[in-house]
Design a binder for these strands. Structure first.
Lengths: 219, 219
DNA sequence: AATGAACGAACGATCGTTCATTCTATGACA
DNA sequence: TGTCATAGAATGAACGATCGTTCGTTCATT
């Protein structure tokens, strides 16, 4: 159940349809069973031991198909890794935007996005690990202007500044800090150093990022 | 000059001695010129294309020595990568603690640490990139209880909570968010999306993390 | 029978590592 | 001062393993 953490205060939970969330439908692409098996196996191994640490033979074995069959669907290992990354990277950004849209105000939007990322981490940890913890390899290759989680945060925060919901600051620094705070929290959970009810975590992280964006407290 | 950003409001800037900061002396180890050349070349390549993307021949070429010479100083490629990581990871934690110690209060301590990390990023970007952006590979191998940047943040924040400088919260969540905010800011600078005076950045990031730790603002 | 997916042996390249050999710096001795 | 023995460092060819990729063949479906 991918919507278990998504509570956006009385607003339609997510834009996910009956056939699953957007990022699922896009990563596990249309109909082709073999291609899906390849992508799922590759994603799992890439998340576990990295792209370089995974051989095409490993992928074939994990997918339960032959080595040569992979090349019926992908030109190369590099294209396979890039296809999975870029597709998911863009889809996640779209989905983040979608879950935030119906919410009113920066707090509700931010909470919806954070809840979505956490729910994705629960339902598909391989995808989150591959995307966020190996992103430095692929990020320079992402075309500017294309859908991108970072720009979702930046746009959200910039918009809140324009509407005087939060004070004016460098939107890039603010977006970086907010995104980093969220990702690192997931990272620490992954390392086993945080063992908390994910619902509480969502509230804590939402509150923390909002304070980070807020006016300074007069002590 | 590694101390150019370290301004801890009238307190001795860092514990670095005349022979350079601790993290430098430890990564570029004692006296042996060849070993230093190997480590410096390896660090540069590891930061650039990752450990798996770097061959021992690459390292030898970049260091200007022969392939076999590396094995006079390291048992294997894995040991080389691990030696560089674990040594630097522990040293950075020690240095963070050292620059924070003479400072009074969470704000000054946090600023000193952030200034130190930013100065390190300026003086040795390879080291920062290798440590922070490829840490997921090595982190599970770090012995618990050993010196660790994460625990420095956690200890600092936990201590501030005990002394009522900041409100009581889950210290692991707080430490994760603070550390993530700092690292991601550096990451965004690396991607060329932030082009600011580093001194301003230090202030902004310090303020942001402190708000994140502070009391909620009554709107 | 025809078509396209699946198969897996084989290929050349490159990997980490080894090791027999060569180089070089040092110090004892004439 | 000049000579040479010696130890440790440096060298790079070679080895076996494994890599990504190819392609002739088989299989399954219509």
């Amino acid at each position: 159940m991918s919507t278990q953490f998504v509570r956006t205060t009385g607003v339609p939970a997510t834009s996910a349809r009956a056939d699953g969330p957007v990022f699922m439908r896009s990563v596990m692409k249309s109909g082709n069973a073999t291609k899906d098996k390849i992508e799922r196996a590759a994603l799992h191994l890439f998340a576990e031991v990295g792209v370089d640490g995974t051989s095409m033979r490993d992928i074939a074995r994990e997918a339960g198909i032959s080595l040569g069959a992979i090349y019926n669907h992908y030109e190369s290992k590099d294209e396979l890794a890039w296809a999975i990354f870029s597709e998911a990277w863009g889809s996640i950004a779209d989905e983040m935007r979608a879950v935030a849209r119906p919410c009113q105000g920066i707090r509700a939007k931010l909470r919806a996005i954070i809840a979505f990322v956490f729910s994705m981490f629960e339902s598909d940890p391989d995808l989150v690990r591959f995307l966020f913890f190996q992103r430095h390899r692929n990020l320079p290759r992402v075309r500017l202007g294309v859908s991108n989680p970072y720009f979702v945060f930046r746009g959200l925060i910039h918009n809140a500044m324009i509407h005087d919901e939060v004070p004016e600051r460098d939107p890039d620094v603010a977006a970086s800090m907010v995104m980093g705070a969220i990702i690192q929290t997931i990272d620490t959970v992954l390392l086993g150093r945080i063992d908390r009810d994910p619902l509480d975590l969502i509230e804590d992280v939402t509150d923390g990022t909002l304070r980070l964006l807020s006016h300074r407290l007069a002590e």
